[in-house]
Amino acid sequence: MVTTRLKLTAQLSTLIYLLTINSLFAQNLDNLLSDKNRIAFGNYLFCEHDYLRAIDEFDFVLKTQWDDSLQFKIATSYYRMMLFDRAYIEFKKIQVNSLLFKQSQYEQYRTLFMSNNYVLLQKVIDNSTSKSEIPLELLHLKNSSILLRDIQLPLKNGFISAFGKDDRTKISEFYDWKYDLPYKSPALATIMSAIIPGSGKIYAEEVGDGITAFLLTGLFTYLAVDKFQNNHNSSGWLYSSIAAFFYAGNVYGSATAVQNYNAGIKFNFDREVKIFINDRNQFLPTPKHLCN
C-alpha cells in the first residue's frame, strides 16, 4: 500500500516537474527577442520587401547599440518606400568614420534626385567637393539634373563633354530638345480666339473643344442677330448674353488650354530625361550585399 502511494507521488512529481520546465522554456522571450534575433528577422523582412516592419526591428536594436549597417538599411527602406525626405534624413545620420559613409553620400544624392529636389542636389554636390575635382559620376548627375531645371543651359560643348561616349549622343539630343522646347504662346491663343472663336483652342491642339466653341458661339450669335432683326428684343438680349458667355469663356479657356499644353510638353521632356538617368542608376554606384 505504502509502495503504491510512493510510486504515485513520484509519478505525479515527475509530471509536475516536466510540465513546469516545459512551460517555462516554451516562451523564453529573452532569447526570442534578443538583438541577434531581431537583426536576423529584420534582415528577412527587409529582403522580403516588408520595409515598415524591418524598420521597427532595426530601430529597436539601434536603441541599445549603434550599427551603421542597420541605419543604412533603415534609410534604404524609406527610399524603397519612396519616402524620400525621410530617407535623406536617415542617410545623413551615417557618420564620416563609417565604412558606409561614401555610399550613404551617394544615396543622399540619389534620394534628392528622386524627390526632384535638383536645387539642393546641385548645392550639396558643390559643397561636398571642390568644383575642380568633382568626381565624374557626380558631374554626370549634376549636369543631367540641370536639364530638369527651369534655368538657362550652359554652353553645349562643355556640358556634354563631361559624359562618356555612350551617353553623349543622347545627352546632346536632350540638350537640343530642352533648348528649343515646342512651347506655345497663351497670348497668341487668346488673340486667335478673340478674332475667330475656337481657333485658340485648335492652336492648343484641343480641336474638338475649338469646333464646339465655334459652333456654340456662332449659333447663339446668329439667333441673337435674327431676333433683333425681327424686333424680338428680349429674346435677342437673352441669346446675346449666352453668346457672350461662350465667347468670353472660350477666349479665357484658350489661354489656359495653352498653359496646360505647355505643362504637357515639359512633363514629357522631364519623363524622357528621368527614364534615361534612372536607366543608368543615376550614374551612381548601387549599394551591394544588402540581401545575400
Binding site: 474638338g208 473643344d209 464646339t212 461662350f246 469663356g249 472660350n250 479665357y252 479657356g253
Partner: peptide, 21 residues
C-alpha cells in the same frame, strides 16, 4: 469664376467627346 465655368461648360459640351486629353 464665371469665365472658368463658361470654358468648363464648353469643354463638357464637346461634340466630339475627345476626352483623351
Amino acid at each position: 469664376a464665371t469665365l472658368m465655368f463658361a470654358d468648363r461648360f464648353t469643354r463638357d459640351s464637346n461634340l466630339f467627346k475627345t476626352h483623351e486629353h
